[in-house]
């Protein structure tokens, strides 16, 4: 089934989009390759958080410099994404740690010692959970960073000289519509992902049990961290862009 779907997808991209659409196939393939490399490095015992930080940087570099042209605004977008990821690592760490969010839970019936998934794997599941939360949001953060830097450049080009304050204000105005749609995009992806889990919740969990359960905690923190990442990239990208542009015009 996967092969058929993949074939349909590639065919559709080639029919309905142009050169840059075709380029996106290559980008996605490189993304997948990077993720596989990351998984292998973690499997060989490297610290998942370090691997994640490196891979997120590589992923955004590919998107910015291959998919987009790698001009000044892509560079600023790239720096913003890296900054946001670095800022988020301690935040995610605190939330995941406080919530004991790591590992598998009894809502995942089939994953048990007796089913062949033994627990003797010698790997820090907390770090792995942090990696998951960071990788899940990288796509959206890149999207928003690109959108904001291009719009600020656009304004700058069309209106000419602007003060730092004006650039900042327009960056924030720009972000509003983008944030709204992006948040919904990932929100629906998460809902789809956890539909079966939500069926379990509605079926058998009380509210008190729900908000204290490991599965809900991990999932909710992950969704919220994605949202927080989206919000954070807005001021970061805006500030960097505005700062660079005012410096340049002087």
């Amino acid at each position: 089934m996967l092969v058929v779907l993949l074939a349909v997808l590639v065919a559709l991209i080639l029919i309905f989009t142009g050169d840059r659409g075709a380029k996106s196939i290559v980008t996605t393939a490189i993304h997948a390759g990077l993720l596989v490399i990351a998984i292998f490095l973690m499997y060989r015992g490297l610290s998942p958080v370090l691997v994640t930080a490196a891979v997120c940087t590589a992923i955004s570099a590919v998107t910015m410099f291959y998919q987009n042209e790698g001009d000044q605004k892509s560079r600023i977008a790239f720096v913003s994404v890296v900054v946001v990821i670095l800022v988020l690592i301690p935040v995610v760490f605190w939330f995941a740690e406080a919530a004991n969010a790591e590992g598998f839970n009894n809502a995942q019936y089939e994953i048990t010692d007796t089913n062949g998934y033994t627990r003797n794997i010698g790997m820090n599941m907390l770090q792995l959970q942090i990696s998951v939360m960071l990788i899940a949001l990288i796509g959206t953060v890149i999207d928003i960073a690109i959108a904001i830097t291009s719009s600020i450049y656009e304004i700058h080009e069309s209106v000419g000289r602007l003060t730092l304050g004006q650039l900042l204000a327009s960056g924030f105005t720009a972000s509003r519509a983008i944030l709204n749609t992006s948040i919904h995009t990932i929100f629906y992806i998460y809902i789809a992902e956890y539909l079966t889990l939500m069926i379990q919740y509605v079926d058998e969990y009380s509210f008190a049990r729900l908000i204290n359960s490991q599965s809900f905690g991990a999932e909710f923190i992950s969704i919220s961290i994605s949202g927080i990442g989206c919000c954070l990239v807005v001021p970061v990208a805006t500030l960097l862009c505005a700062w660079y542009l005012t410096k340049e015009t002087k």
Partner: peptide, 19 residues
């Protein structure tokens, strides 16, 4: 299309890494 595919890919696939 490029960045949208990125969102789709990472948001969907990330959660399965621990497993």
């Amino acid at each position: 299309v490029g960045t949208m595919l990125g969102i789709m890919f990472f948001a969907n696939v990330a959660a399965s890494i621990p497993f």
